[in-house]
Design a protein around this nucleic acid. Structure first.
Length: 559
RNA sequence: UGUCCCAUGGUGUAACGGUAGCACUACGGAAUUUGGCUCCGUCUGUGGGGGUUCGAAUCCUCCUGGGACAGCCA
């Protein structure tokens, strides 16, 4: 797959390329993508996936999917399976699936090595004491009274920790570095804590678990990782990452940090995402409005459009807030080329063509995709009664309204010209029917006299129209920056119109053939996907992925 | 009053020390059987002060602004 921009290479790739060129790591590239299986992954994760898997792919290397399962209290197999599915859906193939827990024994042995070397010790301070002994960013920490424990005692205590002789929180194993270090991560970081918890893979074989800092770099080393690509938030951890590897004298990967992806109108913190699901603000983790991979998948975005989006966003070390519109642009760009066109009237109003014979019928041919002649065409039945969009008619049309009005002529897409002669309304003044005449000469959409019409409307034949449910989605929030909320709550910015369900829509018969997950363009409306969960055979539920660019909406000041 | 990181149009991202470019957005126009697509055009940028240099977005320095770090989370 070619995800590379022709012009310019991001700094991560530049760095990898340089290492390859210089023969560092033997010219090899080995990466890993290390999620913690404690939740569903989202678009932010997709960037990390794209980088780690993408770079390995581009440089002829390999990438492992490694679950960083060092905290049994929050992790589960359910998430392991979900994450595998999501990565695969994005289009990436892992060299193999591995787990940090596969390395627990090796990690333990290495911890023993550090203890013997006087580089680690068992601390018996309470959690609170450890915290207060750590100092603050501006004040140095203080040594624990247990810091000078003899090696033998540390060894014995550590073994007893593993043996389960102590309750949670009574002891930890710490690296012995420098309690006055200006980088807080270097102030004797915790390597192991006691957790009598059942692990989703190792069950109850362990009751001490390695921390991220202790497990991560060493796992990378075991796998022969060359470039350990992670978020900017781990920048301050790199000195510690390097320290452990140096003490052990083992394979030493290069950690490289990139900027995480933030998008306008979207919230990506796991905690808040969870809250939205639990509070019923959205309908589950795969709600089409969610930024989770499952959500954007159900919404209808394609893996290719996501990758293209990532390419266009690029990589740097600046904190960013990307315009969500860019994702939509990428989706439209792809689907414009590949999606079939379909006519669906969202809010129908009946049109009776008074000079068309009752009971008569004729067939027009409509191109499936004007951008792709090879896609061919489909037949469309036309008759005396059809539906058009209620919005496509106005009684008192403003200056630049190019659609139907009394006395005006418009084209019905792929069919003919019609002119409106009479408006029928109910007692409440609502338009119930438009009585029009058509020009038999205009069959096919043009007339011999070459006269032009300003508007072309989509329509469906009343006799064989099929009712479909259509769901329109919009931003979940009304505020662009949902990352820096200060002391405000995300619930203050919920968009009440983020989901609209239309039940009166009428579609051309062909929509019955839409398979769940299949995408199409509803002419003049936007790109839609047949919902993967709620569509039934012959009766698709259509999710709007994104609308078409709509210069009329802008000009007329509507949404 | 610590360490580390960052700073180019509205947004994102380029530019061996040598013409600040590309994309998205916005706006204008052309064309149009989708008010889509396409095509053409326009607006907006190197955070500030010093220094090095023939020449600085780029190198040095100070400042300003922003961010990360005080979990036995990752």
């Amino acid at each position: 797959m070619s995800d590379r921009e022709s012009n310019g290479v991001d700094f991560v790739r530049a760095r990898v390329a340089e290492d390859v060129k210089n023969g560092r790591f033997g010219g090899k590239v080995q990466t890993r993508w290390p999620p913690e299986p404690n939740g569903y992954i989202h678009l932010g994760h997709a960037k990390g996936i794209w980088l780690s898997f993408g770079i390995a792919e581009e440089f002829g290397g390999a990438c492992k999917l490694r679950f960083d399962d060092t905290n049994p209290t929050k992790e589960s197999v359910e998430f392991v399976e979900a994450i595998k599915e999501d990565v695969a859906w994005l289009g990436y193939e892992w060299e193999e699936v591995v787990f940090a827990s596969d390395y627990y024994e090796q990690l333990y042995d290495w911890a023993l090595t550090l203890i013997r070397d006087g580089k680690a010790y068992v601390d018996s301070l309470s959690r609170e004491e450890i915290s207060s002994f750590r100092g603050t960013p501006t004040e140095p920490g203080r040594n624990s009274p247990f810091r000078e424990r003899p090696v033998q005692e540390n060894l014995e205590l550590f073994e007893r920790m593993r043996a389960g002789e102590f309750p949670d929180g009574t002891h930890v194993l710490r690296a012995r570095i420098d309690m006055a270090h200006p980088n807080l991560n270097m102030r004797d970081p915790v390597m192991y804590r006691i957790l009598h918890a059942r692990h989703h893979r190792t069950a109850d074989r362990w009751c001490i678990y390695p921390t991220y800092d202790w497990a991560h770099g060493q796992s990378d080393s075991i796998e022969g990782v060359t470039h350990s690509i992670c978020g900017l938030e781990f920048e301050n951890h790199r000195p510690l990452y390097d320290w452990f590897l140096d003490q052990l004298g083992v394979w030493h990967p290069q950690q490289v940090e990139y900027n995480n992806l933030n998008m306008t109108y979207t919230l990506q913190s796991k905690r808040n995402l969870r809250a939205m699901v639990e509070e019923g603000i959205v309908n589950g983790w795969d709600d089409p409005r969610m930024p989770t991979i499952r959500g954007i998948r159900r919404r209808g975005y394609t893996p290719q459009s996501i990758r293209e989006f990532l390419v266009r966003v690029g990589v740097s070390k600046t904190e960013i807030m990307v315009d969500r519109g860019l994702l939509d642009f990428c989706l439209r760009e792809e689907l414009n080329r590949t999606a079939r066109r379909v006519m669906v009237v969202l809010d129908p109003v009946k049109v009776v063509i008074t000079n068309y014979d009752e009971g008569a019928t004729e067939t027009f041919h409509a191109e499936e995709n004007p951008e792709d002649p090879a896609a061919g065409s489909r037949p469309l039945t036309f008759s005396r009664e059809i539906y058009i969009e209620r919005d496509d008619f106005m009684e008192d049309p403003p200056k630049k309204f190019f659609r139907l009005a009394e006395g005006r002529e418009v084209r019905l897409k792929h069919a003919c010209y019609i002119t409106c002669n009479e408006v029928v309304k109910d007692a409440g003044g609502t338009v119930t029917e438009l009585r029009c005449t058509y020009d038999p000469e205009s069959r096919g959409g043009t007339t011999p006299d070459g006269r032009k019409v300003k508007g072309t409307l989509h329509w469906v034949n009343a006799a064989d129209a099929v009712p479909v449910e259509v769901r329109l989605f919009d931003h979940l929030f009304t505020r662009e920056d949902m990352v820096n909320l200060g002391d405000r709550d995300f619930r203050e910015f919920l968009n009440p119109g983020s989901r609209t369900v239309l039940t009166g829509a009428m579609a051309e018969p062909g929509v019955r053939g839409l398979r769940p997950g299949e995408r199409c363009q509803l002419l003049r409306h936007g790109y839609f996907v047949a919902d993967e969960s709620d569509s039934e055979p012959g009766r698709p539920v259509l999710n709007r992925i994104t609308g078409l660019r709509d210069s009329w909406a802008k000009a007329s000041g509507r949404s």
